[in-house]
C-alpha cells in the first residue's frame, strides 16, 4: 500500500463461527491473537492499517465469556482482494483448532455500522441441575425474579493468578508480583435481563433455561449471574449463589433488540 495512492478497494467479510468444546476456555483476548495468526497462516490477503506499525483490519464482536460455548459468533475481516467466502471458510477451517469452526461468511458494505453496534442482545441457553424441583416451581421462580425491581450482584475485576513470574534474565530477577488488586463493584442486573424463560426439564434431570441479555458498553448481562439469581430465587430468600455448580451455558446467537443504531 503506497502512500498518496487512491485507497484500495476494501473487501469486508463477515465471518460467522462457532466456539465449542475445549476452546471455549480460550479468553476473548487470546481468541483475537489466535484468529489473527490463523488468518495469516492460511494466507488470507489481509488489509493492514497504515502508519508506524501496520495491523490487520479485523473487528471482533462482543466478548464471549470464558467457559461459554458460542454457536454463532462473528468477526469482520477486511481483505485487500476478493476471495470467495466459501474459500475463506474452507481455508480457515483447515487451520483453526478443533472446536472453533467458521460456519459461513458473506461480504458486507465496507461503510456499514461496526460489528459491535450491530448487536445489543445475546441469546443464551443454560442447563442447570433441576435440584429435584419440577418445571412449575422453576417457572414460578423465574416469574418472581423478573418481578423484582432491582437485582443487585457483586462483580469482581482484576487480580488474575499467575502473572509476573521468574526472570527471563540470568539473575534471580522476578518480574515482581503485585498486579492490580481485585476490585469489587455492585451492579443492578435486572435491566440487563431482556427475557428469561424456563423451557423444559430434560430427561437427564436438568432444567433448560433460555435467556436474552443486554450487550453493550453500558453493561452486559452475564448468564452465570442470572442463573445464580434464579437458583437463589428458587431456594428462597437470603440465599446467594454466584455460579451454580454443574451448569453448562452456550450463547446461541446475537441480535439487535432496539431499532435505532448508534
Amino acid at each position: 500500500m503506497t502512500a498518496g495512492n487512491v485507497p484500495a478497494t476494501r473487501w469486508r467479510l463477515r465471518v460467522c463461527y462457532t466456539k465449542t468444546g475445549r476452546p471455549r476456555f480460550i479468553s476473548h483476548l487470546d481468541f483475537i491473537r489466535l484468529f489473527e495468526r490463523t488468518a495469516r497462516r492460511v494466507g488470507l490477503p489481509l488489509s493492514y492499517s497504515e502508519g508506524f506499525s501496520p495491523a490487520p483490519r479485523i473487528a471482533y464482536g462482543w466478548p464471549l465469556p470464558v467457559g461459554l460455548s458460542g454457536m454463532a459468533e462473528y468477526v469482520d475481516v477486511e481483505l485487500s482482494s476478493r476471495v470467495t467466502p466459501e474459500e475463506v471458510v474452507a481455508r480457515l477451517n483447515r487451520a483453526l483448532p478443533e472446536g472453533i469452526q467458521a460456519r459461513d461468511a458473506r461480504y458486507i458494505s465496507p461503510h456499514g455500522p461496526s460489528l459491535m453496534s450491530e448487536f445489543d442482545t445475546g441469546s443464551y441457553v443454560a442447563h442447570l441441575p433441576a435440584a429435584g424441583r419440577d418445571l412449575e416451581e422453576w417457572r414460578a421462580a423465574a416469574t418472581r425474579l423478573l418481578s423484582r425491581p432491582k437485582l443487585e450482584v457483586t462483580r469482581e475485576r482484576g487480580g488474575p493468578a499467575g502473572r509476573g513470574g521468574p526472570a527471563e534474565r540470568g539473575g534471580p530477577a522476578g518480574r515482581g508480583g503485585g498486579g492490580p488488586g481485585v476490585q469489587v463493584k455492585v451492579v443492578d442486573a435486572r435491566p440487563l435481563i431482556r427475557r428469561l424463560e424456563v423451557k423444559e426439564l430434560s430427561p437427564d434431570g436438568r432444567v433448560v433455561v433460555l435467556m436474552e441479555l443486554a450487550l453493550g458498553d453500558k453493561g452486559a448481562g452475564r448468564p452465570d449471574e442470572v442463573a445464580g439469581l434464579l437458583v437463589a430465587e428458587l431456594a428462597g430468600e437470603g440465599v446467594s449463589v454466584t455460579r451454580p455448580e454443574g451448569m453448562m451455558v452456550a450463547r446461541l446467537g446475537l441480535r439487535r433488540e432496539s431499532a435505532a443504531r448508534t
Binding site: R22, P23, I26, S27, P160
Partner: peptide
Amino acid sequence: RPARYLDG
C-alpha cells in the same frame, strides 16, 4: 487460565 492445559 484453564487454556494452559488444553492441547490442540
